[in-house]
Simulated assay, not measured.
Amino acid sequence: MSDAGHRGSVPYDPAPLPVEEAVEMYLNRRRSDSDTTVGTVETHLKRLNYLIEFCELEDIENICDLRGHHLERYREWRRTEATTKVESLAAKTIAEHMKTIRVFLRSMEQMEYVYPGMADRVHVPGLSDEDEVNEDILEYDRAQNILSYIAKSEPWTADHSVWELFVRNGVRLCTARAPDIEDYHSEADVPYIELHHRPDTDTRLKNGTDSERKVFLEEQTAKVLDRYIEHNHPKETDKHGRMPLIGTVHGRPNKSTIRGMVYKWTRPCHLNKPCPHGKTPDNCEAASSRETPSACPSMRSPHPIRKGYVTHLAEEGVPPRIVGDRVDADPEVLKKHYDQSDDEAKMRVRQELIEHALDDADEENWY
């Protein structure tokens, strides 16, 4: 049987297109889609760069030369060989990578650069409940200890302010980056940040306008922000003429800059603590660069801090709906992906809530 594809009953051969050009064409198509974020394009670029590398190794010049057996080999190569920091990729990670390959090939099918049905030949591994839940978390106590260290060594700085927002308020990275100084209301009875989704000026919120809300700040966080703005804020506007709440000498920080503020402080050696992995700053790649998070097993990104905060609230007995409103997340999502409390801790919370409710009922003579 011929490899030639069919459009209805008319056979056709896909037009030859170099793999690298095919990837760029796909990314340009995504960039022109108003529903596609810059972050999504960057993520797809990183993943598809592995496909380009694989095709070079396999001597596949044009995307139309890709076959099902190549896709099978690519998945295993990406999982076990195209890794430098771990022995093999986690099931969830490889599944996400293969989903990107499938979406990419679907686009190539539409433009008739691959044979019909190629996207359907991409196998996306199924995930168990355990695979779907990322256990990576920065425990609340550890996060508080790091924050205390920063407060002593670099008080009232951008790093100090960012850590306050992450540790005491559980915000997302985009939430820490998006607000302007004028969105911060320190003189209110309860200090708060007013969040706005502004996609036309490069400050999107995770859930668009649904993420717009007022986030109250703990007194300590407001104090840090006030002193940061007064003493250390560079007072430089971004390219859109807005003054960011967290600033740099170039204006608004990019996401990698904020990640770097977290990476460096989660390295034990940066806190003058012994390395739990048997290394010294002189022989450790991660000690000299905050841009290589996976090089240090102890290093964490902002998201695990958020998970630690949510788990802390859950262990303190804060109802899921209140936590969800606070951190802009669905209670069911919180339960599955964020709350890392063990069963005994959850039982104690339920016990305390019920006993507290019964005590209140007894005092009010409700029964």
Rank of each mutant, 00 (worst) to 15 (best):
H6W: 09
G8D: 12
P11F: 03
P14A: 04
P16W: 06
V19C: 04
S32Q: 12
H44G: 03
H44L: 03
L51I: 04
E53S: 14
C55K: 01
E58W: 07
E58S: 09
I60K: 04
I63W: 00
L66G: 01
R75N: 06
R75C: 07
R78A: 10
A82C: 09
T84N: 13
E96Q: 15
T100P: 02
S107L: 04
Q110I: 11
Y115K: 11
M118R: 05
A119N: 03
D120H: 12
V122L: 04
V122K: 00
L127R: 08
L127G: 02
E132Q: 15
L147F: 02
A158N: 05
H160T: 03
V162T: 04
W163R: 01
F166G: 01
R177I: 14
E182Y: 11
A188F: 07
V190T: 13
Y192N: 03
H197C: 09
H197V: 03
T203K: 05
S211I: 08
V215D: 00
L217P: 01
E218Y: 06
Q220M: 13
K223D: 15
V224P: 00
R227C: 05
R227Q: 15
E230V: 09
H231K: 15
H231G: 04
H233W: 01
K235L: 12
T237W: 03
G241D: 06
L245S: 01
N254H: 13
S256H: 11
T257C: 08
R259H: 09
G260V: 05
Y263K: 04
H270D: 05
C275F: 03
P276Q: 07
C284R: 02
S289E: 12
E291M: 15
R300P: 00
S301M: 12
H303W: 10
I305F: 07
A314Y: 01
P319W: 08
I322M: 12
A329N: 07
E332L: 09
E332M: 08
K335N: 10
D339P: 03
D342Y: 06
E344R: 14
K346T: 09
L353C: 10
I354N: 10
A357Y: 08
D359G: 14
D359C: 07
D362K: 14
E363L: 13
E363G: 09
E364W: 03
Y367Q: 13
